[in-house]
Design a protein around this nucleic acid. Structure first.
Lengths: 222, 222
DNA sequence: AATCCATTTACGGATTCCCGTAAAGATATA
DNA sequence: TATATCTTTACGGGAATCCGTAAATGGATT
């Protein structure tokens, strides 16, 4: 079994259970960080001490706090960690279940497993840990499998997210056109933006911009 | 200490920790339900068996499932339970931290305490249980205290929520006007709706309808 | 009943969105 | 280079919003 595991999780009510689960799997060294920044420092120090972690189990969202933090999300944390320890195994343990996000985590961040917090997630987490330890293909839970299958999700890209976020900020199409020109994002003609928004409206079955933002907010895209 | 406590919480990773906390407080009977409907049935049966629960600790949001459930949220659950056992003590244990919601729970639902899931919430939960057991005023955590103090929050009423939700559904002002007329909601003139939306836009510093929905979605109002 | 006051509704012009079509520009192929 | 094709941009008309002002309505008071 893994020897040294780090848990990045802000909620004490969850981290305590995860620690317990790891103990039951006979993990020797179990450490825990409530902030992404702390988690990163622990990983860094462990490398320096020539006793690196074998596995990171990380949440995605961390509650903002009085504390100033460099890393605000689990996604950023994992990306930073992979830069200094590319071979570390990573499991994301989060309540998020949006296909788009899960798919992106496997594809762009290269996580080893995704376990969705739910009614029977501790068993799933333990299973995922076993499978990764044995270098086996992880079985995808129904949610994750669905996310990976859903091809259409791949067409929504950073550009669209950008556009939706600008809309959600209350900018007009002309505003966004200028903004995109400044940032060098193309296409940036207000007519093109309009067309792209129209595609998004068809895709998400939205009847107008307000509806579109409401839907994509619910999906966690913006 | 309380003798018989029910936990309504869908996430196993959290309920396990809460159970443990209650054990440390020497609660004799600790039961747990993963669905609101199950929680309600347990409360009902306990009354019938002349061994009612003393305390309910409930989450607010429950993940939707394959299962069909009558009660979808902790708020609904508590309201239903209060109808059949008005004297039961209730603690809401949730990650939500929106002032509007917390305030409404104290005012409209009559909960005894609100503990926000966070980095040190198990201690807070234990403290809240002690205080309620001793019939003392609960100390409000900074978040909750802020919610209770914020007077302005009270001006946003069901009417506004209704209006915002209709907007978020993609309806036009004329659509909403008809809808409100059907439901007997007044005012319902499209001009009045416009005026009300304008007030909301000023209040939330939104520059247009899209912005307004984005903001209120973030606040958890819709 | 008459007056006042607040709320609701109506109206009009400017801006923005919405939607289709056409022009301009870019890329690829022969 | 010429042509075809796709993407991006421009344009125009109709609908919805945005925002200010004025009229109508409904209570409360005298």
């Amino acid at each position: 079994m893994f020897n040294k595991v780090l848990i990045a999780e802000d909620l004490d009510s969850i981290s305590m259970t995860v620690v317990q689960a790891l103990e039951e799997l006979f993990v020797v060294e179990i450490h825990h960080a409530k902030y992404c920044d702390d988690a990163f420092l622990k990983i860094k120090k462990a490398i320096h001490d020539k006793a690196p972690y074998d596995l990171l189990i990380s949440d995605l969202s961390f509650k903002p706090d009085h504390r100033q933090n460099r890393l605000a999300s689990g996604e950023e944390l994992i990306q930073e960690i992979k830069k200094i320890q590319p071979d570390i195994k990573t499991i994301v343990f989060s309540i998020e279940d949006k296909s788009y996000r899960i798919k992106s985590l496997f594809q762009n961040v290269g996580i080893n497993a995704y376990v969705s917090k739910g009614r029977d997630s501790i068993q799933e987490l333990k299973k995922a840990i076993h499978l990764i330890y044995n270098n086996k293909e992880i079985e995808l839970s129904e949610e994750v499998a669905h996310a990976m299958r859903d091809k259409s999700l791949f067409e929504i890209e950073a550009y669209d997210i950008n556009l939706l976020k600008s809309l959600a900020k209350g900018l007009t199409l002309d505003d966004i056109s200028f903004e995109f020109k400044d940032s060098g994002i193309i296409p940036n003609g207000s007519s093109s933006l309009e067309k792209r928004i129209n595609k998004l409206k068809i895709y998400f079955k939205a009847s107008n911009n307000v509806h579109l933002i409401a839907i994509t907010k619910d999906l966690g895209l913006v």
